[in-house]
Amino acid sequence: MKKLSSIFIVDDDPITVFGIKRMLKPVAICDDIQIFQNGKEAFDALSERHTSGKEIPAVIFLDINMPIMDGWDFLKEMIDLDIHERVIINMITSSIDPSDYQRWNDFKERCPHQLNFKNKPIFKIEVSDLDGFHMAS
């Protein structure tokens, strides 16, 4: 069981949000799980936390296809925020479009955070999905 201070779930599909929350239960203890319907809402919250010096989420579950601001736009803006903490970002999508995978690869190169790519369906969240320091083990 891993103890986490804060988790963001960014997805417009309530079923996926329900699934992630449920799968987190057996692996993580977290008192601060925030749900956002699109990238814009999540970014506004993240930006507010960053500027006011509040806790930055340790893990973000990020959907790609969302209205208003999609997962990619959110990533771009987040990189620009210049957050010092290394955040684990799990991109969760049902897309099997190779161009999405390619984009993930490009982002991984220049993103200071840990960027994972997870194709739906997912049945379990591993501890490794919550722990950025694989190299430490």
């Binding site: 599909d13 079923i15 996926t16 699934g19 449920r22 296809n65 479009d97 739906k120 369906p121 997912i122």
Partner: peptide, 16 residues
């Protein structure tokens, strides 16, 4: 994409 996202949801929920 659309069918996959629904089928993924089914799979996940049925597993639960």
């Amino acid at each position: 994409h659309n069918l996959r996202s629904h089928s993924a949801n089914f799979s996940m929920l049925l597993q639960f």
